[in-house]
């Protein structure tokens, strides 16, 4: 409904590999468990009504203040290194 839509904790960028050791347990944690932080939270937003980019937003969940916005593609490049 809004310009941006929310997807969830930015840890979702770190998807386990299917052939990892204990992949089943890793996928359970990846899919269902969340730290649900009160305070500075990194999270994924999709610019639905705009350029359709995926963003990693750093936001304070106690007062909704947005501290940093990065392109998810850039963040993922950092993770791969």
């Amino acid at each position: 409904m809004g310009e941006f839509i929310y997807y969830g904790d930015a840890s979702l960028l770190k998807r386990p590999k299917w052939d990892d050791k204990n992949a089943e347990d890793k996928f359970y944690k990846y899919l269902y468990l969340r730290k649900n932080i009160a305070g500075i939270h990194k999270e994924l937003w999709f610019h639905q009504q705009g350029d359709r980019s995926w963003l990693v937003v750093t936001r304070n969940t106690k007062n909704h203040e947005i501290l940093k916005v990065e392109l998810a593609t850039e963040v993922v490049k950092g993770l791969d290194k």
Binding site: G8, R34, N36
Partner: peptide, 18 residues
């Protein structure tokens, strides 16, 4: 509403978002 915060004291990570 605050379950994740309280139970993090018991080292629990839950399938919950607030």
């Amino acid at each position: 509403g605050s379950t994740s915060l309280l139970l993090s004291k018991a080292d629990m990570v839950l399938p919950i978002e607030s």
